[in-house]
Design a binder for these strands. Structure first.
Lengths: 252, 252
DNA sequence: GAGTGGTCTAGACCACCCT
DNA sequence: GGGTGGTCTAGACCACTCC
């Protein structure tokens, strides 16, 4: 390549190309929303094969810097991320709005199915047919959340209908259902197949997940679910209660 | 391919191959620790080019199912994940031990540097030279945590030395430094360059991160840092204080 | 030396978008 | 029709491991 050594020492060609494109993004030469130079041009410019450029750009899509639209070009992604408190993380609609974004909820499906996702088994959910509500939440038309929630089949239709319109917690609140207990597991994971479609991200795209288990009284029931978000669109803030700090390391 | 339609309908060839290999792992035909059939053999078996097989296997490495050792073969990864409470998440050594794993801490480096990572800027850290302690924590010789912590340069050498041997919180505790305040941001992110080396994972591998900000009294200081873990090795459990649930949705 | 995974290339084909 | 990204292929080369 004519751009000798340029940025960062990645030994391989596609690493060098990746670093250079990455540099052009961070320095603002390629701006968010813009299409970058086409693969063919880049291959010519760098003096490498087009496949090597494709490899570099593919990696940059996996790391969230670029996104491609087949037939059009490869674009620099907008860079904004919401940070929401975990406590209200499940009722982030107000949170989204207060941050200056326009929230939107779109129900994907309401089905009856068994829980197959193994990660939810940490909550020991019932192994029977449950009502599954799936929805997507947008901020300014950008999808930031994909949620699947599992509720008992005898749940009132009215409440289930609400589930598709807002976060579970909000829906329960509207119907005065008291939440008795609530636990979370937070983890990261490659985007699920559905999430890949919804978020337009490639196979191994990192996502932040919140798995939850709610227990309500009056009526008594257990609700579990998964909230999945692209890593570059949402983060959680947590401020452990100060009382807990002193309890730390009490194990065994 | 002779294995007609096999599993899951991915339209493209490498998706079909990926699904089939994935199936062989989940059904136990390829077992954790085992080497899978070589690329050349798979290409022959499926009747596709070796590059297509490589693509499929590469994707499976990105999703944590496989790991490769150049010159030897491609192996099925062991599947175990620690779930630790966020409160004690930073002093997980006892946690690791109580789960039946042998913990080990390895100090990587102690340097003086400015904070460059933009994600830490949410904590408004001081923009001056800080002491940076980097370390890796293992469970049964498997690296599960890569931590970078930034402390004031006037920190006592003895304490800094402790930082390299245990979690920050534990080190402070040992020296009776009181933690006044503590806040976390939890997010996901593609593995950083150093994490890729430490964890032997590819470029876009999903990791779970805990960014923290500690404020201590006697002496008064601010400590920030990042804890990075492979998504398939660690998750966090959080149980919001029950008092907080009632406060939910109070926004605006 | 045979086998392995990883990189790189040249070139073909397709589906798509925009005139 | 010309440009774009995405898939697939055949084949070459390298560094590595194991015997």
């Amino acid at each position: 390549m004519n751009n000798s050594a340029s940025t960062s020492n990645g030994s391989t060609l596609h690493e060098i190309v990746r670093a250079e494109i990455s540099r052009r993004i961070t320095t603002g030469m390629y701006k968010p929303g813009d299409a970058i130079t086409s693969i063919a041009r880049l291959a010519e410019e760098f003096g490498v094969s087009s496949i090597t450029v494709k490899r570099a750009l593919s990696d940059l899509q996996s790391t969230g810097l670029l996104t491609s639209i087949p037939g059009k070009g490869i674009y620099v992604k907008d860079r904004f991320r919401l940070v929401c408190e975990l406590d209200v993380g499940m009722s982030a609609l107000g949170n989204i709005r207060s941050l200056g974004f326009q929230p939107k909820v779109q129900r994907i499906s309401v089905t009856k199915e068994r829980i197959e996702d193994v990660t939810l088994s940490v909550f020991n959910p019932p192994d029977r047919l449950l009502l599954c509500v799936r929805k997507v939440i947008y901020a300014d038309e950008v999808p930031i959340v994909y949620e699947s929630s599992f509720v008992p089949t005898n749940m009132s239709d009215k409440i289930v209908d609400e589930f598709g319109k807002r976060f579970i917690i909000d829906a329960l609140k509207r119907y005065k259902v008291a939440v008795k207990e609530m636990s979370f597991i937070i983890d990261a994971a490659p985007a699920s197949q559905e999430a890949q479609r919804v978020f337009s991200v490639p196979n191994s795209y990192p996502t932040l997940r919140r798995l939850y288990n709610l227990k309500t009284s009056a009526p008594t029931m257990s609700i579990v679910g998964i909230i999945e978000s692209p890593f570059d669109r949402l983060a959680c803030s947590v401020r452990p209660g100060s009382g807990r700090i002193s309890k730390m390391n009490k194990k065994k």
